[in-house]
Each structure stands twice: as C-alpha cells, then as structure tokens.
C-alpha cells in the first residue's frame, strides 16, 4: 500500500490521503473498504476517523481532519472484497499548526 498526503507540509485541518493498493502480483485491489483512524503521539487525545472512497480501481482517497499539530499515527483498517481484514499503519510527522 502506498500513501500520499497533501498538502505538503501537512497542516492542521483537512488533509487528503491518497492510497494506492496492490496485491502481491502488483494488480490493483479494487472494491476494498477502507476506514482510517488517526491518533496523536500523545495519549489522551481524541482520535479522528475517516472513510476512503475508491476513485479508480485500486486507488482510494480520504479526507481526514487533523485537529492538532504534531505527529499523527494513521491506521488503515482494510476490508478486502473477499472479507479478509488487514491493518496498515503509517505516520504523518510534523503536522504544522
């Protein structure tokens, strides 16, 4: 799974997360359901949630509202068309105020 964040550098407020998902053979994974969860690196902060929609086969786009500056840890909860579930994690570092 490849992800891309915009704007760069990311700022507090809405950010767009583009996700490109391929299987082991390199074929795009279409028809998956993606739920995103963003957590701050400090405990006690309310997480933010978002869903992603498929823009073309294997390409997904989500709008996440980052409520605070700092480092964010994003978990993508992925449900494949056959029902299998996977988690993918990445960080958005240094979100500016």
């Amino acid at each position: 799974m490849v992800h891309e964040i915009s704007p760069q550098p990311p700022r507090v407020g809405p950010v767009t997360i583009a996700l490109n998902i391929k299987d082991r053979s390199g074929a795009p994974v279409a028809g998956a359901r993606l739920n995103l969860e963003g957590n701050m690196s400090h405990a006690g902060m309310t997480p933010v949630f978002a869903e992603a929609s498929e823009t073309e086969p294997g390409h997904y786009r989500s709008m996440m509202e980052l409520s605070m500056a700092g480092d964010w840890h994003v978990t993508v909860h992925l449900t494949l068309p056959d029902g299998r579930r996977l988690d993918h994690e990445f960080e958005i570092r240094g979100v500016e105020p």
Binding site: D71, G94, P97
Partner: peptide, 10 residues
C-alpha cells in the same frame, strides 16, 4: 494560548 504540538522526533 499556543497551538499544541506534540512531536516525538525533531
């Protein structure tokens, strides 16, 4: 009054 900013690595 400053915006909170928690970064683990600077």
């Amino acid at each position: 009054s400053q915006p909170m900013d928690m970064r683990a690595v600077v």
